[in-house]
């Protein structure tokens, strides 16, 4: 078996299989991917046997590094086992202590292979909630117009953006993305993302990313200083109004319930809303030091 690393320059070859959104992710700082072929001279999409994409978690924090497998592809029996072996080698090189995943689009064959590779599998409710943009527009709390100190992301310059990010960075739980502080301002949807300005400085962000498929995902929702709770609500109002003006009502919005406070908020805004059924799994890669 021959393995090729997936990256920005070759991902276009497998876009059909990988999907537009995952293909975009591969260019990001902590995303890794491998593709598996029989013939080293033929790395076309048709000859792809297996592939995996994963993201390193807590790689730059003081916690142990983990890896989240975000996608697996198995075209031929036996190939995914080989890809998983290669994955294990690569993550150990990056000092990953444990691996985990939450996948929706896997078949029985992939499940068996993952289970045999040492992953403890279980069925669970996804931490991701998919909500239609229209449903946000129907929320009573968000109907009011946002005040004039909430600014569109496009209206601030990159210096102000960086200054705001620095302030927020000190709270490590603020960002939903591992590479949040490496992403340029342009990566975020500048029409829908917004910030709050206090005394000429950025004090909070609601940053939204729009994937190539049209999916919208809020990735940073945080405000510092006094009145931060009011600012959060105002930023939400701003972004919902901007998104409704910009995109169709049926645009899906993905909210990852990664902390208790996010779950509490989604429960309050959308009571009874459940995430999709997923297969989750975890495995220890290396024992703790």
């Amino acid at each position: 078996m021959f393995f090729q690393e997936l990256h920005e320059s070759n991902i276009h070859k497998y876009k059909e299989i990988v999907g537009k959104d995952r293909a975009e992710d591969i260019s990001r700082y902590f995303f890794r991917g491998i593709a598996c072929f029989d013939d080293p001279d033929d790395d076309s999409e048709e000859s792809l046997k297996a592939a995996m994409i994963w993201e390193l978690k807590s790689a730059e924090s003081d916690e142990d590094t983990a890896s989240e497998i975000t996608w697996v592809y198995d075209a031929e029996p036996g190939s995914l086992e080989a890809a998983l072996d290669e994955y294990s080698k690569r993550v150990r090189d990056e000092d990953v202590r444990r691996s985990f995943f939450e996948l929706t689009d896997i078949g029985n064959n992939e499940k068996d292979v993952l289970s045999l590779s040492g992953f403890n599998l279980s069925s669970a409710e996804s931490r991701d909630l998919r909500i239609c943009l229209k449903e946000f527009g129907e929320l009573r709390a968000l109907r009011r117009k946002a005040p004039n100190y909430i600014y569109n992301l496009g209206s601030i310059d990159s210096d102000q953006f960086e200054q705001g990010m620095i302030k927020i960075m000190f709270n490590q739980n603020a960002a939903a993305l591992e590479d949040m502080y490496y992403l340029p301002k342009e990566w975020f949807d500048e029409k829908v993302s917004c910030c709050v300005m206090t005394d000429g400085c950025v004090n909070g962000f609601l940053l939204v990313h729009r994937y190539p498929s049209g999916l919208i995902r809020p990735v940073l929702f945080y405000s510092v200083g006094a009145d931060s709770n009011y600012n959060l609500l105002d930023m939400m109002r701003y972004s919902v109004h901007a998104a409704l003006a910009e995109y169709p009502d049926d645009t899906p919005v993905l909210i990852r319930r990664r902390t208790k406070s996010v779950s509490k908020l989604t429960d309050k805004l959308f009571p009874g809303k459940k995430g999709e059924a997923v297969i989750s799994g975890k495995r220890i890669e290396q024992e703790d030091r």
Binding site: P147, Y149, M197, T198, D199, G225, A226, D227
Partner: peptide, 11 residues
């Protein structure tokens, strides 16, 4: 407490 004029204007 806050050394912020904007905050006073808003509150």
């Amino acid at each position: 407490l806050h050394q912020s004029r904007d905050l006073i204007r808003r509150r």
